[in-house]
């Protein structure tokens, strides 16, 4: 085995196939620190899975009630698995999407065709100004036993919008504060059965 452990980060790194083999073992993981062993246990039998898209690289994580593990694809067919606490995972997600203070967009929710957001054009003001100043369009999906939930956000220099898909190719865009986005994000585990929502 050529797995290497970074104790400070509670992270194990190695070729993809060796990480897969580690996760397929039945024996309790003989890894230190304990947080890494807990993360490996969570990865072997996760109660929930998380996926972040809209970033430069997708980010994936798995969790049980005690711990979580970030799954980090590396160059050269290698993978890193980083153990973290439940709150540590949420902190990583918040940092990954770069949630930060933004002006209050204000106003009422808007319903628009999805192509307006996809193409960032064709919207009426003030939405078009926000699309012109868009910094990121990210989405965090969470999946538990038989249930999925997501938080999707348009992050513009002018404000934040929560995005909700509607039937027939339409979206509802709701102006939101960074506090409201954080509240939605930290509620994700509860929505998919990991702790209370």
């Amino acid at each position: 085995m050529s797995l290497t452990v970074d104790h400070a980060r509670a992270q194990v790194t190695g070729p993809d196939e060796e990480i897969r083999a580690l996760l397929a073992e039945d024996a309790p993981p003989a890894l230190e620190p304990p947080l890494l062993a807990d993360g490996v246990r969570a990865a072997r039998s996760p109660d929930a899975r998380f996926r972040v898209t809209g970033l430069e690289e997708p980010l994936e994580a798995v969790a049980d009630a005690r711990a979580a593990a970030l799954v980090l694809p590396l160059a050269g067919g290698r993978t890193a698995l980083r153990g973290c606490t439940p709150s540590g995972l949420l902190g990583v997600l918040v940092r990954a999407v770069r949630l930060r203070p933004r002006p209050r967009a204000g106003g009422e929710p808007l319903t628009v065709p999805a192509r307006v957001v996809g193409e960032r054009s064709g919207a009426e003001e003030p939405l078009q100004a926000h699309l012109d100043a868009l910094v990121a369009h990210w989405r965090i999906e969470a999946y538990g036993p038989g249930i999925g939930w997501y938080v999707e956000v348009l992050d513009s220099e002018l404000g934040l919008w929560l995005v909700e898909a509607l039937p027939e190719g339409k979206l509802t865009l709701t102006p939101a504060t960074a506090t409201a986005v954080l509240d939605e994000l930290v509620a994700l585990p509860g929505h998919v059965g990991l702790g209370a929502s």
Binding site: S87, G91, D183, V186, G195
Partner: peptide, 9 residues
């Protein structure tokens, strides 16, 4: 703790 915030905020 951030993992408890949804319940307590």
């Amino acid at each position: 703790d951030l993992a408890a915030w949804a319940q307590l905020a």
